[in-house]
């Protein structure tokens, strides 16, 4: 089976720290990584192809340096990778992104399954997967924690807030996966060497026959009008003393505040 995995390169927010004096983000030297949920999607794709045969294609839309994320995915074992890159795509919101990805996927040919991470680490929207499914007219199943492919059908266990749901749908389909679905593999040296040498084609707006009024800022109905630091309530109250003493103090405070 042919699987397309859509990934996003994001800043590694686990490496981001807050400058305590200014309350702003320290982003200096923060590396870019594959969105962690997308790594789960890659792993799921690799496992499905190991079981059923086929080919894993990694797709990302981003600036030229997003190529590194694709090489990292190739190092994990993906078969090929494609970068969608054009100035016309800059400023895309989730609608424009799903349109652009859909156009690229149409240009790539036949596939059986599209996998995405449940959401991106930087935007946290969870909107591109379903948006892409809509653009391609595919059934979607979000929050997959288990995937079983059986011929032209796929059975998916979904992880929801307070329950699991097992659903079945037809292929081709688009699934988004949660972190709990697997443990993404580490790239071995062989994979790193292979990824270094891989050719990564770059698709532009022209290559994917995109209508540029639907791309980038033009094709994005939403705009950010203001970015600001959240209010932090600053230093709270420090409780000091022996364990018994601070425990008593804390309990009284919580009690007074009617929290417990």
């Amino acid at each position: 089976m042919n699987i397309i995995v859509c990934i996003k390169q994001v800043p590694d927010t686990t490496e981001v720290r807050i400058d305590p004096s200014t309350g702003t983000l320290v982003r200096e030297g923060v590396p870019s990584i594959i969105n962690p949920f997308d790594e789960n999607a890659i792993e799921a794709a690799l496992q499905l192809v190991e079981a059923h045969g086929g080919c894993v294609t990694i797709l990302t839309m981003g600036p030229p340096q997003a190529e590194q994320a694709l090489r990292d995915a190739l190092a994990m074992g993906a078969d090929r990778a494609v970068l969608i890159c054009d100035r016309a795509f800059a400023g895309s919101d989730t609608l424009a992104t799903s349109y652009t990805l859909a156009q690229a996927i149409r240009s790539l040919g036949d596939f059986d399954l599209i996998l995405c991470g449940k959401q991106a680490f930087d935007g946290d929207t969870a909107q591109v997967g379903p948006g892409l499914a809509e653009q391609l007219g595919l059934p979607q199943v979000t929050y997959a924690i288990n995937i079983e492919v059986d011929g032209k059908k796929v059975r998916v266990k979904r992880l929801l807030d307070d329950r699991f749901e097992v659903v079945e749908t037809r292929l081709p389909a688009l699934l988004t996966v949660v972190k709990q679905i697997n443990d993404p593999r580490h790239a071995g040296l062989r994979g790193v060497m292979k990824a270094r040498k891989a050719e990564i084609p770059v698709l532009t707006a022209g290559d994917i026959e995109a209508d540029i009024t639907r791309c980038g800022l033009n094709g994005s109905p939403t705009n950010v009008v203001r970015v600001f630091s959240p209010q932090r309530h600053g230093q709270g109250e420090k409780l000091e003393g022996e364990p018994d003493e601070v425990a008593r103090q804390l309990f009284e405070k919580l009690h007074t505040a009617q929290i417990v």
């Binding site: 190092a75 580490h186 790239a187 040296l189 790193v192 060497m193 270094r196």
Partner: peptide
């Protein structure tokens, strides 16, 4: 690149 992969591992 190789050392970076080993570092990550």
């Amino acid at each position: 690149d190789i050392f970076a992969a080993v570092d990550e591992l």
